[in-house]
Amino acid sequence: MRLKLVARLSRGGPQSIVRLTKGTPLTRQAITKHLHVLAGAGLVRGTRRGRESRWELEPQRLDVAYRYLDLISKRWDVALRRLRTLVEE
């Protein structure tokens, strides 16, 4: 269920508990509990807006994920350039 919540937040962007609960067999309380566990793991965060909380993926986590991929990607570029030199010489 927690993975499903992360997937929904990743697809749908920041959203309220009401929207996150829709289409699941769980109560709002149960969803809230899961969200707090995810928040404890640094994956999501909730911000209060008026009377309702909006939940979103922790942006820094995504930032790390993107920049890590970029780093690995650059490594491949360098390695593949070297491969090109080897096979084309």
Binding site: L62, L69, I72, L80, R82, L83, R84, L86, E88
Partner: peptide, 30 residues
């Protein structure tokens, strides 16, 4: 954020590229 995809056109025959990626010594050089 799960995958990286690279495409590169190498001006060399397929057998040459195959050797460069599957011969462990050649793989190691690049």
């Amino acid at each position: 954020t799960d995958r990286i995809e690279k495409k590169i056109l190498l001006h060399a025959p397929r057998s040459r590229v195959w050797r460069a990626i599957t011969d462990s010594k050649e793989f190691g050089t690049w």
